[in-house]
Design a protein around this nucleic acid. Structure first.
Length: 300
DNA sequence: AATTCGTGGTC
DNA sequence: TGACCAAGAAT
């Protein structure tokens, strides 16, 4: 007997509407799942699909990844965005190789300790790759619960304790069912209960949805600030790193000057790239992608 | 707790 | 066309 009238329709909907994604196949390795989750952080599925296949083809295991240079991870990352993720994924592979015998850990706390693995990704890998029972709260699930349970169009800006409690209350007791529930609610948010233009007519829980029953009131809260991009340090960093990625060897300062004219911002961005370990300055004044393992600050 | 961190597609 | 958005993490 389900804990909530939401369970049966959502699980039934998922059974016939789930996308066939590589990292969901029965033979997908935990490493494949982990790589997919890191790539999917703030990056759409359509862009992750080819990148994930290429990544797993090149580095089928954490040990294969750790044996290669971190700069190669940055290069292979291509244009997925947020390239520090590539560096952290390489660092995670190194930790997995040294501390976990080359096997992705199944324990939430051990996953959470890996570089670049936060609350969401640790829960997602433990749940999807190992069938463990965890609250998996991503932007999709938060939006589904905000609407279906709380009757509002969008969840709060940051995840709250109330949201976690709601999600835990709804989480099925059996680990295998909890894992299916987690991926099913995510998929519902991704395909039907979308941020803009939700397809309520196709929703399996439209009759129970508190938001729809309330007449779909518009979002009434603080305006979430939009992120500008043109002219920012982020755009500048992106331009600079693209030069490094597409070069076969070290690049000169003039190579970098060619893609960003404003000198002070360019130097500042370059400094932060070096500080992040994404770029290595050489003694002769040129720059390259990192060859040695980056040092991550120890956690006190 | 509020900021920072890429990139490209959509309506 | 430009604002919005896409399976967050780290600080």
């Amino acid at each position: 007997m389900p804990k909530s009238p939401l369970h049966t329709p959502v699980l039934a909907w998922y059974a016939t509407n789930a996308r066939d994604l590589p990292w969901r196949r029965p033979d997908a390795s935990p490493w494949s799942v982990l790589v997919s989750e890191v790539m999917l952080q703030q990056t759409p599925v359509s862009r992750v699909l080819p990148a994930h296949a290429a990544w797993l083809g090149r580095w089928p295991t954490p040990r294969a990844q750790a044996a290669d240079q971190p700069g190669e991870a940055v290069r292979q990352w291509g244009r997925l965005g947020y390239p520090r993720r590539a560096l952290r994924l390489h660092a995670a592979a190194t930790t997995i190789s040294r501390r976990h015998g080359g096997e992705v850990p199944s324990d939430y706390d051990e996953l959470r300790d890996l570089p670049g693995i936060g609350d969401y990704t640790a829960a997602a890998v433990a749940s999807f790759a190992f069938g463990r029972r965890h609250v998996v709260l991503d932007t999709n699930v938060r939006r589904v619960f905000a609407r279906a349970v709380d009757g509002v169009q969008y969840p709060p800006t940051a995840t709250t304790a109330v949201e976690r409690r709601t999600a835990l209350t709804l989480l099925p007791d059996e680990p295998a069912t909890a894992a299916r529930w987690a991926v099913a609610t995510m998929e519902l948010g991704a395909l039907v209960c979308t941020a803009a233009g939700p397809r309520c007519a196709d929703c399996p829980i439209r009759r129970q949805c508190a938001w729809r029953l309330a007449g779909q009131p518009a979002y009434d809260g603080p305006p979430r600030r939009r992120q500008s991009y043109d002219g920012t340090d982020r755009q500048c960093r992106g331009r600079l790193l693209r030069v490094l990625r597409e070069a076969s060897g070290p690049v000169t300062r003039s190579d970098l000057e060619a893609v960003w004219s404003a000198a002070p911002q360019r130097e500042r961005a370059l400094d932060t790239l070096v500080a992040d370990g994404l770029v290595e300055p050489l003694a002769d004044g040129t720059f390259r992608l990192p060859v040695s393992a980056p040092v991550f600050p120890p956690t006190p």
